[in-house]
Nucleic acid binder design. Structure first.
Length: 270
DNA sequence: GAACAGGCAACTC
DNA sequence: GAGTTGCCTGTT
């Protein structure tokens, strides 16, 4: 029987912003506004009630506490005094948190993300899990775990044809083999400094600057990483000096990046 | 039907 | 080392 756990007050964790800001691909809102998804092999339902975020799942409590990065105080971690524009992004993005996702899932997902939009990324990831992950039933529906690097290292591009990831299939297999053989030790990268971690990731075929930065930030939780995609590039062009360096935003530059990203996209859709 | 997309690699000067 | 092109697939 699953249990309900209070994770945080809604002002500290906004589930819509957190799940919809492009950092993760396995959470979906139902018509009831409840987000359902799976992380670390545990399916869960996440929703707001009486001003709090509640998680229903079979996982140990600490798992969700960690997943939602609740040990970090985002108010004091936020980048203040870096200008009016950034302040307005922080204000708009209030409640976003950088999830502590599984490193391998992040690596694989962001390889898939290249030159793709979010709905399509989600579709490919879902087919990947359905095809190669393990089924876990939860509250009457079937969820699928993210397939291990070992499982995927034993597949061929033909096997992966069903997920329709295109030319990225080769990259997925290369990455799986590297992780599986120990050539790339994701656990070790987590305890290293972010720049060495990024350097090691860049040695993997199919991983370039953008993907490496995303994996470092979203999969290894090194908050200094600052992925630059078209949205961020546009925002930087408009609101920051030409010689802008992400390092100037300090150890939480990645969090600032997420506020800017969310902000740019939310303004666009208005 | 051609161009393009939240990117990368391999090739070209 | 800066610039160009192919790459799967889905969408406009």
């Amino acid at each position: 029987m699953s249990r309900e756990t209070v994770i945080a007050p809604v002002n500290e964790l906004n589930i819509e912003k957190t799940f919809e800001c492009g950092q993760c691909f396995r959470w979906n809102a139902g018509p009831d506004g409840v987000y359902r998804g799976i992380a670390y092999g545990y399916p869960a339902a996440v929703y707001e009630q009486d001003g709090a975020v509640i998680v229903r799942s079979d996982a140990p409590d600490s798992l969700w506490h960690d997943y939602f990065d609740m040990d970090l105080n985002y108010t004091s971690a936020s980048v203040f005094g870096a200008g009016e524009y950034l302040d307005s992004c922080v204000e708009r993005g209030k409640g976003i948190r950088i999830l502590r996702q599984e490193p391998w899932e992040a690596l694989c997902s962001f390889i898939i993300s290249q030159c793709n939009n979010i709905p399509r990324i989600k579709g490919i990831v879902e087919r990947l899990c359905r095809e190669f992950g393990n089924p876990v039933s939860f509250e009457g529906s079937e969820f699928f775990t993210f397939p291990s690097a070992e499982t995927l290292s034993n597949t061929t591009e033909d096997d992966l044809a069903v997920i329709r990831s295109g030319y990225r299939a080769e990259y997925i297999i290369c990455a799986a083999k590297a992780v599986c053989s120990g050539e790339l030790d994701l656990g070790k990268l987590m305890s290293e400094d972010w720049e060495s971690a990024k350097k090691d990731l860049l040695s993997i075929r199919g991983v370039g600057e953008k993907v490496a930065n995303c994996v470092v930030l979203f999969g290894l939780h090194h908050m200094e990483a600052f992925p630059i995609d078209v949205w961020i590039r546009r925002a930087l062009k408009e609101h920051f000096p030409k010689d802008f360096r992400p390092e100037s935003l300090g150890p939480y530059a990645g969090l600032a990046q997420q506020y800017i990203f969310y902000s740019a996209r939310s303004l666009e859709s208005k």
